[in-house]
Nucleic acid binder design. Structure first.
Lengths: 284, 284
DNA sequence: CGCTGTGATACTCGGTCGGTATCACAGCTA
DNA sequence: TAGCTGTGATACCGACCGAGTATCACAGCG
């Protein structure tokens, strides 16, 4: 009577997302009436009205907002429990395995050093490197798809995780080698902000849906190509120089904030394997 | 098929705690057979063996250890979702309310300043101060009994939460005024560690079950009384001077680590009320 | 060799989940 | 204003699942 089942949270979150019972039911793969009843029962159980049913759609009450927020956390936590348990069970007996989430294409050098150094440790576990989309590492840690991640501040937020800073580097502008600005010794963010023929690329993703003029890109190779074609410019940490093409030029940015790379893990983790990886990383 | 219900996690955690189906069932208020079946079904669903049934009790497999750890997190998260939603629903319409967990008896001065300053803010919400046992604040934040807490490092661990440091202070030894050591201008931890007639008190709680010689205490008044009676000595932040009795003496400790007071909240919190309280606190 | 204590199994019953059909109601439109 | 449309709620039913009781299978022990 004083708890709630995951199924109910899943249902509520679907309705809260869609603000429409029919669509939510479809998304959940059930019919609409059972969904209506489940939400009613949830409200009865909590003793709280979660949704305002205005005869034209649905809206969240204050309590509903809270449950949406907190329920998401709970849902992620159970998904993580399931994933990590399955993973631990699969290779029971054999070596441990840790999933390391890394922004696809980034961290080349650091990652190589880290993996080499760790593999040299006695009793090292297997590290599975999982390339992730932009900013997706946070979700992956939260829902158990990954156990540990490499992240960049200030691009990623580290809230809710434990972390150790590994290195800090300045940022550079990466632009087409033939572009006039590529001749400059240094640039400022303003210099590259408003160049008409080089609109800043926008990462496709949930962060900013700001409809800027620049092309929408999904991964780094795509970006590299667009830069090489003289279509856009991008801001990256210095270590991005390792993957530059002939047609690229990197110019230091005088006023871009420095980027710090962190190794990040869920705060409640307690595994020996993870602890050793972190120790190795912080000694690099 | 790829998720798990809270009920199953509750059941598994009970068994993993007790390592005994009968006792676990009793604790859960159900009969033993349904519990056995529920665990079997959970194992089937996860495709993983969680428990090793040796005909004399039960032991956890590696995967079981993981599920115990991660499941606890998930359980806390759903309990928190339920508590916070109920709380938000109760006073719907009236003013918001925030529950602030505070170690019982501590933080007198700071707390007064904070509550006064916050109450003076326009549109201030109601702050319910919830006195908690030693080190219990962390659990309270995790399972939703509280929304925000005041904690002392290094006594409390801040892992998994966001926090802002508010003040740092040195520590003092609090001892009976009539005791010879009370005459000293300063003391070191060694000085008070092995005094035969003043065994260090041990806080009753989960942290250390180390069977020391000192009395086991549950709250601060109890401790104050024991010190006044000349039976024990304790180490406290300087601000503890506010509640000293006539019979107490406070002597600075030269080598005790300084204590920092933080305001701490769950990393995913996003409420306006909380943000304002934090802002007020960090400006004190 | 039986007793004790363990967890698993067999079987039954009741609640609940999910489905289909239908209702009640608001807003629109002809 | 009558009817259509789209919304969520209700009625009813079947199937499954969770919980209970009774019992089994087995190891350890006197």
């Amino acid at each position: 009577m004083d708890t709630v089942e995951i199924r109910e949270l899943r249902y509520f979150i679907a309705v809260a997302d869609e603000l429409h019972f029919g669509r939510a039911a479809e998304r959940l793969g059930i019919a609409q009436p059972p969904l209506s009843r489940a939400i009613q029962q949830l409200e009865r159980r909590l003793g709280v009205t979660l949704l305002e049913r205005n005869r034209r759609g649905v809206s969240l009450t204050g309590a509903g907002e809270i449950l949406l927020q907190e329920g998401r956390v709970a849902l992620d936590a159970t998904a993580a429990a399931v994933r990590r348990t399955r993973r631990a069970g699969r290779q029971d007996g054999s070596r441990d395995r840790l999933v390391l989430a890394v922004k696809a294409g980034a961290f080349h050098e650091l990652l190589n050093k880290l993996l080499d150094a760790y593999a040299a440790e006695p009793g090292a576990a297997e590290i599975e490197v999982l390339p992730s989309g932009t900013c997706e590492q946070e979700d992956m840690l939260r829902d158990g798809r990954a156990d540990v991640a490499l992240m960049h501040t200030p691009y990623n937020s580290l809230t809710g995780f434990d972390s150790v800073a590994l290195m800090t580097e300045a940022q550079v502008a990466i632009l087409p080698a033939r572009h006039p600005l590529a001749e400059r010794k240094t640039l400022s963010l303003n210099d590259i902000a408003d160049v008409p023929d080089l609109p800043l690329a926008r990462w496709a993703g949930k962060d900013t849906h700001a409809p800027g003029p620049g092309p929408e890109i999904h991964d780094q190779t795509q970006l590299a190509q667009l830069i090489a074609l003289g279509r856009t410019v991008a801001v990256f940490p210095e270590s991005a120089r390792t993957w530059l093409w002939e047609e690229h030029a990197a110019v230091p940015l005088s006023d871009a904030p420095p980027v710090t790379t962190h190794i990040v893990w869920p705060a409640h983790s307690r595994s020996r394997v993870l602890a050793e990886l972190i120790r190795t990383a912080s000694r690099l």
